Simulated scan of single mutants.
Amino acid sequence: MVNFNGKLFSEQTDIFSYGNRGLKYGDALFETVRCVNGTIFFWEDHYFRLMASMRILRMEIPMEFTLEFLEEEILKTVTENGLETKPTRVRLTVFRNEGGLYWPTINEVSFVIEVNSLESPFYLIQEESYEVELFKDYFVNKDMLSNLKTTNKILNVVASVYAKENGYDNCLLINNDKQVVEVINGNLFLVTENIIKTPPLSDGCLNGIIRQKLIEVIKSLEGYQLLEESISPFELQKADELFITNSIQGIRPIYKYRKKMYTNTVAKSLLGKLNAKARIG
């Protein structure tokens, strides 16, 4: 069952028309969250990111779009799919309603909520091989729109096809200055001795929720220095660890880039603290 504007439909129901602006122009935003036993991990952060993004895209925020309303709609969808006691992946998509060409005739929005089950209620470290490569065909723009979680993800799609065709698990994306920005499905952190770096938002990376939470965690730790600085491709092979963050996997270590092999010691240490932060909310 999917939730479209508060009403539940079977997955086989045609609920979108050819005029859907998310389809025609990518005029949509989405949040992907993890839900466990009625608790949506970092829900306030996701909600306020969504509201801020809607304002930036000049979407009209409905009066009923409160934190509590959208949380209730998510939990209703989870329950109706029989997943209330199981770890669940939730995707909430908000799109501008039909009308106009590039210039929309209205700024009102609709939403759709999709859910599916996950294996574990909490974030786990993956130990199996995970290899990445630099994707150099196209670039991430260094602007605020790149920080938003919109459905304009054709670069990520093409990079995913490249990774699949060449036997990689993921790709590192770069901006026009040839700085490493993120990966296909999340933010990037680099560890060299006691320094942990992640690209700044000004380089064009996604303003990821787990990125934010991990920055908070690292800044509170003794023995590590957190830097939000540009990452050159040349730094990758000098690092001790590379890892990915996103709202579904939490922390995903990278184990190989070209001839360089990486450890996961820091990633493991941080994952326990991230799980604790998720349980607290």
Rank of each mutant, 00 (worst) to 15 (best):
residue 55 R to C: 07
residue 209 I to H: 04
residue 44 E to V: 03
residue 155 L to E: 11
residue 111 F to G: 09
residue 9 F to Y: 15
residue 118 L to D: 13
residue 209 I to K: 02
residue 186 G to D: 06
residue 48 F to G: 01
residue 62 P to M: 00
residue 97 N to W: 03
residue 230 S to D: 08
residue 36 V to W: 05
residue 186 G to M: 02
residue 39 T to Q: 15
residue 60 E to P: 02
residue 91 R to L: 05
residue 6 G to E: 06
residue 218 I to T: 10
residue 8 L to V: 02
residue 23 L to H: 06
residue 125 I to H: 04
residue 275 N to P: 10
residue 105 T to A: 04
residue 211 R to C: 09
residue 73 E to W: 04
residue 103 W to L: 15
residue 172 L to Y: 03
residue 242 L to H: 02
residue 133 E to D: 14
residue 192 T to L: 13
residue 12 Q to H: 11
residue 77 T to G: 03
residue 279 R to E: 14
residue 281 G to V: 05
residue 177 D to K: 14
residue 58 R to F: 05
residue 73 E to T: 09
residue 92 L to G: 10
residue 191 V to R: 00
residue 252 R to N: 11
residue 1 M to C: 00
residue 241 E to N: 05
residue 113 I to T: 12
residue 249 Q to F: 08
residue 275 N to M: 07
residue 10 S to H: 12
residue 46 H to M: 06
residue 129 S to H: 05
residue 249 Q to I: 11
residue 221 L to H: 08
residue 102 Y to S: 10
residue 67 L to I: 08
residue 277 K to G: 00
residue 50 L to S: 07
residue 157 V to D: 11
residue 213 K to C: 10
residue 88 T to H: 04
residue 4 F to N: 09
residue 261 M to T: 00
residue 23 L to E: 10
residue 221 L to W: 07
residue 17 S to T: 15
residue 241 E to P: 02
residue 109 V to N: 12
residue 208 G to H: 05
residue 93 T to W: 01
residue 219 K to N: 15
residue 21 R to G: 06
residue 236 L to P: 04
residue 93 T to P: 07
residue 155 L to A: 08
residue 226 L to G: 13
residue 280 I to H: 11
residue 216 E to R: 09
residue 12 Q to V: 03
residue 97 N to Q: 14
residue 27 D to L: 05
residue 193 E to A: 14
residue 162 Y to N: 14
residue 87 P to V: 03
residue 122 F to D: 12
residue 128 E to V: 01
residue 132 V to M: 00
residue 50 L to H: 08
residue 280 I to K: 13
residue 69 F to D: 08
residue 141 N to E: 15
residue 59 M to L: 03
residue 231 I to R: 05
residue 100 G to C: 01
residue 191 V to D: 00
residue 28 A to T: 01
residue 155 L to P: 12
residue 13 T to L: 02
residue 84 E to R: 07
residue 51 M to D: 06
residue 218 I to C: 05
residue 205 C to N: 13
residue 55 R to V: 01
residue 140 V to A: 03
residue 268 K to A: 11
residue 217 V to M: 07
residue 33 V to Y: 06
residue 211 R to D: 08
residue 273 K to L: 15
residue 94 V to M: 10
residue 203 D to Q: 04
residue 132 V to Y: 01
residue 212 Q to W: 11
residue 271 L to K: 03
residue 98 E to T: 14
residue 29 L to D: 11
residue 141 N to A: 15
residue 40 I to Q: 11
residue 83 L to Y: 11
residue 95 F to H: 11
residue 127 E to V: 09
residue 233 P to W: 03
residue 11 E to Q: 14
residue 122 F to H: 12
residue 52 A to N: 11
residue 13 T to C: 08
residue 35 C to H: 04
residue 193 E to L: 04
residue 272 G to K: 12
residue 113 I to E: 12
residue 241 E to Y: 00
residue 81 N to E: 12
residue 173 L to H: 08
residue 59 M to C: 06
residue 215 I to W: 09
residue 183 V to Y: 05
residue 9 F to Q: 05
residue 198 T to C: 01
residue 223 G to N: 03
residue 1 M to L: 07
residue 71 E to T: 14
residue 118 L to V: 09
residue 164 K to F: 00
residue 194 N to Q: 12
residue 113 I to F: 07
residue 163 A to L: 03
residue 27 D to V: 09
residue 195 I to L: 08
residue 55 R to N: 14
residue 69 F to N: 13
residue 195 I to T: 15
residue 120 S to E: 15
residue 13 T to K: 13
residue 127 E to N: 14
residue 204 G to Y: 07
residue 145 L to P: 10
residue 39 T to K: 15
residue 150 T to E: 08
residue 149 K to H: 04
